[in-house]
Design a protein around this nucleic acid. Structure first.
Length: 559
DNA sequence: TTAGGGTTAG
């Protein structure tokens, strides 16, 4: 009988490794899952065919109707258990990727243990895989939140005869190191690129560097990287490059640095319309409307006419303020200057009205837009679906979702994410999973945000097996778990009293060099305290201390 | 990546 099961039976996911190899917090019933309704599990051998398809990666059967919502998820868990769910069970079948065997072989090596990348390099010596650029890119994507493994693999790949890293592969590695704030190593890699071949370092490389620095609040370093890149790496500091720097600064919330750069470089690098738009957007975002206006005047002085992008930045800013009177003024000004709002402008206004609960007005914008002959795009539909769902009109949202292809717009990952999120929100769990399946059929690759609402739902409803299935599905689709997702899992599991599982994820996050927020650490420790799990509590606390010293740790790993 | 997305719960 399936009164209890262990998550380890799920197959290849890391949890299994953790449980068997690390023996962390393992007790016989640590993963008991009595809430999963064992009766249903044992007595429902018949599953809807779409779930079978989902798990076995067969082509979907035609009878998948969207209103079929009778199925209760718990049986899925039972079914998975009874089928001895295997890793092949949810392969994506995406033919564009490397054959499954290669990437899986590599992953087996990379997941072997928590080692420094040096150890990983040694470990990989026994790996009989022929390296190719596409394999490298896939591994870097799959481990984009695990720099240690990614870098270990990257170094090993470089040593393989007959293979040389492409510029794209180097850039991807630079980005992964920057993402994990491993700036020392990141710079070393850029230097290595230069030594390897001077052409390898491009504006693409430097844009990634600048963006990652800015993302970490290292604005001055981003600016310095720009100022020195021509001399050091032969990357030209032209208008385009300057725009890339300023965009990074503005997107990462420092209009101040962007403005300073602008003033400093004004005489040496000629700004263009984009330069002004980036700055205007930055000022608008910071609610510095007067400065934004001044910049628009300066733009005119420089003989660039404000365009739809310029005005849309103002529209967005006033929408954020909820000042729709001003929005109308801008729209009027815009028309007077011969600029028509486009689909982006309309999306912003509609979304904003929807957010402030003026749904009728929001839908009015949709009508107005159609009258204007402005054609909706996928992002617009995503916004519309979101608004409808948020205001309880889920059926309408689903209808729009279904209809958009008839209107000639293909569903993209954002549209799917919005719809999946909406479905979960309205407790249409099965539908949400079915949508995930449909993404595969439409060759739309899921991203980490696709899974977030589903994972959250699993945590809340204590669907441990489904959680395992989804985590596996993520791996198969080269979606790397990021900090936000770890936090979601840890908090969600804590809230559901699944502290042991929360600990496993916490430990994994820390070992990947990711730092859950203090509040998350506190929550977990408190939960352990409540349950009287003193030993586990100590372990978690020591991990917290461990990650409190990232410098020495990263040095340890780098050496 | 020149303007448009969202989910911190409590």
């Amino acid at each position: 009988m399936l009164t209890k099961f262990r998550i380890s039976k799920l197959g290849s996911y890391t949890l299994r490794r953790r449980i068997y190899e690390r023996r962390f917090l393992v007790t016989n019933n640590a993963f008991s899952d009595a809430e999963e309704s064992p009766v249903v599990a044992a007595e429902s051998p018949e599953l809807p065919s779409w779930i079978k398809d989902f798990l076995s990666n067969k082509p979907s059967s035609a009878n998948s109707s969207l209103d079929d919502e009778d199925f209760v998820i718990p049986s899925l868990a039972g079914w998975v258990e009874s089928q001895k769910f295997s890793r092949e069970g949810v392969s994506t079948g995406n033919v564009a990727k490397k054959p499954v065997e290669d990437i899986d072989k590599v992953c087996e090596f990379l997941n072997k243990k928590d080692a420094s990348h040096g150890d990983i390099v040694n470990e990989l010596i026994g790996c009989d895989v022929v390296v190719s650029e596409s394999l490298v890119l896939q591994v870097l994507r799959r481990f984009s939140n695990g720099w240690n493994q990614a870098y270990g693999f990257f170094v090993w790949a470089k040593s393989q005869t007959g293979y040389r890293h492409s510029s794209q592969a180097y850039n991807a590695m630079v980005d992964v190191l920057g993402k994990s704030r491993n700036f020392e190593l990141m710079w070393r890699l850029v230097d290595e690129m230069k030594c390897e071949s001077p052409e390898l370092v491009t504006l693409d490389t430097m844009s990634k560097v600048m963006r990652r620095l800015a993302k970490s609040g290292k604005y001055s370093e981003a600016v310095d990287a720009f100022l020195e890149m021509e001399k050091s790496y032969g990357v030209r500091t032209d208008t385009n490059a300057m725009n890339s720097l300023m965009d990074a600064l503005v997107k990462e919330n420092s209009i101040e640095h962007a403005h300073e750069v602008f003033l400093k470089l004004f005489d040496s690098i000629k700004p263009d319309a984009r330069t002004f738009n980036i700055l205007i957007h930055g000022f608008c975002k910071a609610r510095r409307f007067d400065d934004a206006r001044t910049m628009m005047d300066l733009m005119k002085v420089a003989e660039f006419a404000p365009d739809v992008v310029t005005y849309t930045s103002f529209v967005e800013a006033y929408c954020r303020e909820g000042d729709f009177r001003r929005v109308d003024e801008i729209l009027k000004e815009m028309r007077e200057n011969g600029r028509k709002p486009n689909v982006v402008t309309y999306t912003i206004v509609m979304h904003s009205l929807g957010k402030s609960r003026q749904v009728a007005e929001a839908l009015g914008v949709y009508e107005k837009m159609k009258e204007d002959g402005c054609v909706p795009d996928a992002k617009f539909y995503s916004s519309l679906i979101h608004i409808l769902s948020k205001t309880g009109r889920f059926k309408d949202a689903a209808e729009i979702f279904e209809d958009m292809t008839n209107q000639g717009v293909a569903r993209d990952v954002l549209v799917y994410n919005t719809m999946i999120s909406a479905a979960v929100h309205h407790s249409r769990d099965e539908m949400a999973l079915r949508l995930l399946k449909r993404m595969e059929e439409e060759s739309c690759s899921p991203n980490v945000e696709t899974y977030a609402p589903l994972l959250k739902m699993c945590c809340q409803k204590k669907k441990m097996k489904l959680l395992g299935v989804l985590l596996h599905h993520m791996v198969k689709n080269d979606v790397s778990i990021d900090v936000a997702t770890y936090i979601l899992l840890i908090r969600g599991l804590c809230m559901s009293g699944k502290v042991e599982e929360a600990c496993l994820f916490f430990e994994e996050a820390v070992h990947k060099g990711m730092v859950p927020r203090d509040s998350t650490c506190k929550l977990l420790v408190e939960e352990l305290e409540k349950k009287g799990m003193a030993e586990a509590k100590l372990k978690i606390q020591s991990l917290v201390q461990f990650k409190a010293m990232p410098k020495s740790q990263s040095q340890l790993r780098v050496s």
